[in-house]
Design a protein around this nucleic acid. Structure first.
Lengths: 307, 307
DNA sequence: CTTTGTTGTGAGTTTAGCTCACATCCAGTG
DNA sequence: CACTGGATGTGAGCTAAACTCACAACAAAG
């Protein structure tokens, strides 16, 4: 409530530079702490002494000890910056939480996450394995990856990530034993699916213009990542999103005899309105969009043919 | 001693902007306090919310009240900036003190001082009327104007202000009654001097090449400003420094029948080494040097002839 | 005397922070 | 319901504070 206009108070940056200098008893080390050059600190201290009109550091030889005034000033400043620091800590919210399905997390997100952390070393991201609806005000979730088939909460900010490309995959050995040249050949194959998406084969038949075929899974698994493992082990043929099978396709553990086709589903980002202001979130969002565009829903050209 | 490197702490300027906003419950008023536009404050608050990841102000309609987090943050910041403020006050030294002779102060400095305060509204200057030696570590003096005839203290920083121009002056009426055409005419005049510089007439005779004349003051005064008043009242002719008689010459209360000549003395600034770092002192010093060059020791061309 | 570690500084560059001008939104009012 | 006044938000562009770089100065230690 007080705080008069105050003539010519020195720059806060300079005050911080001096505080660090006094604490370390060295401009060079202060500069290191503040991630600037020693020259920058030197100038700040000099400017501070000029506007204050008091020598703050006694330069005897190579030692830089604070003068009595400098000492008093430094103590006050250390206290003040400590208060600022503590206050900020209390206000700063927890890490970002990203929610997605177990399959996306295991097959797509986790293998790529290291790249994000390399580019943004100090953004913490917590992962939440969940594919239900989300209540941003109740659940502690900043960001969710969801299919367009799930209605988003009213307050969510939506960001489209593009269509999900789907296609049948199987082990190379399986394909050798059971040639799949036309979709009709699938009739004789052992068809696999997930419990979460039992209609996957029918959907694929429709989007590829084979609506006439009646393809029915003979066995199903709880998650796509199990399904993918099953297919890779030669248990049969599975329709899977391309993005989830990418690493198996690249390593040759899976092949895609009919390539991939844009499916009916789209992937979306649901963004919490509270978290939307966070700069870290923007970084994560941009990275997700970028990854999705590069290694995501749309198969890269060379993967198209079935690798 | 703690104070970790701290990732991405927000700019202190932004923190101050937010603190003022929360205190005034208005960005516009905060901007006014900080002498910036409301736009600047708006950006700072937004940036702070982004790096912190928490909404700090609840924008309902036209009212800007802090959110609970904003409130907590603002309280901490107010405390911290209060500590900084108080600490600075305790360290900040008193006003600059300028020492000079009574005559310089009354005849030259005080009439010009208003100009300095107009250009530097928030630099306080205390005046010290004294013409002795100075001990900067004992006397509380930042700056002294002294003649080159007085030896400066060892630690003083010296700044030359130029030669002192001297010349005989008297009232116009006096000159009419007692024409002074050549220096020889002074023999019949009533010669005045100061106690502090009894040899003024001899000095003037020497520097004007009239060393042969023996001019002796018949009456003397304690200070130049008394001497100048005496001459203006028609009591006789006085040798005075041009800078001290400027306003009387301009107003026509005094005339200088022989003009002015550079005397043997120079004026100097003695600068306290402790105060030398003060930015305010540099402003005062520059102003003094400038004034001295413009209206100072060297007479301006049109005043040369004796006005 | 050389080496090493420190701070000071002139010159030039980068960028945070600012202004300006206009957009937007809301409340109150005729 | 348009209109006016007072607040904040924002794109574009500018300025000055802050920074870097490279070199100088200087003290301490070998």
């Amino acid at each position: 409530m007080s705080q008069q206009p105050s003539q010519s108070l020195p720059s806060l940056v300079a005050l911080r530079a001096f505080e660090a200098t006094a604490r370390h008893r060295s401009m060079s080390r202060a500069a290191e702490e503040l991630c600037v050059t020693h020259g920058a600190v030197s100038r700040h201290v000099k400017a501070l002494e000029a506007t204050l009109g008091v020598p703050l550091l006694a330069r005897r030889g190579t030692a830089t000890d604070p003068t009595p005034e400098g000492q008093r000033l430094a103590e006050g400043l250390t206290t003040a910056f400590g208060v600022i620091h503590a206050t900020l800590e209390r206000v700063r919210p927890g890490p970002l939480t990203l929610s997605c399905s177990a399959s996306i997390m295991l097959c797509w997100l986790i293998p790529r996450m290291a790249g994000f952390h390399r580019r943004n070393p100090d953004v913490q991201v917590e992962l939440n394995m969940n594919y239900d609806k989300v209540d941003f005000s109740r659940d502690n979730i900043s960001l969710a990856i969801r299919s367009s088939t799930i209605p988003p909460p009213r307050d969510a900010i939506i960001r489209e990530l593009g269509a999900e490309w789907i296609g049948p995959v199987c082990a190379p050995d399986y394909l050798a034993a059971m040639p799949l040249v036309t979709p009709d050949d699938l009739a004789g194959a052992h068809l696999l699916a997930t419990n979460t998406r039992p209609e996957a084969w029918r959907d694929w038949a429709e989007v590829t213009g084979n609506g006439g075929l009646t393809l029915k899974a003979q066995r199903s698994f709880d998650h796509f990542y199990l399904l993918i493992q099953a297919a890779a082990c030669g248990l049969g043929v599975a329709v899977v999103p391309h993005m989830l099978a990418l690493s198996e396709l690249q390593s040759g553990r899976l092949v895609a005899p009919f390539g991939f086709t844009p499916g009916a589903r789209h992937l979306r980002l649901w963004i919490s309105p509270q978290a939307a202001i966070r700069a870290e979130l923007k970084a994560l969002e941009a990275w997700l969009v970028g990854e999705m565009a590069t290694f995501g829903a749309a198969p890269r050209p060379e993967a198209r043919g079935g690798n």
